[in-house]
Amino acid sequence: MDKTLKLDSDGHLQYLADWSEQAAQQLAASENIELSEAHWEIIYLLKEFYQRFELAPPMRPLVKYIAQNLGKEKGRSIYLMQLFPPSPARVASKIAGLPRPENCL
């Protein structure tokens, strides 16, 4: 496992280009999360969000975007809370290699 990932002061990847599935696993481990299929689905959608809008989404837009793409069952904050506790938008962004969401309350 690559231990030399460059992180910013929030523990997010400094360079999105450094992201890999291995890096994601390493970042997830630092949040005590073991990645499953359900996690990867959200992570890849989050990367798509960032590529499309150039924004790391806070909770509400993330939930809305997931509902649009993966259905209403998954587009709920409780579902994300179970996957990425304790702060899904921040934790999932970190694992997906994105900067910390702006306007993240």
């Binding site: 809008f53 924004l55 989404p57 509400r60 809305k64």
Partner: peptide, 11 residues
């Protein structure tokens, strides 16, 4: 323009 297209997702 990419950022602006996210406005609806941000309500």
């Amino acid at each position: 323009a990419s950022m602006a297209s996210a406005l609806a997702l941000y309500d």
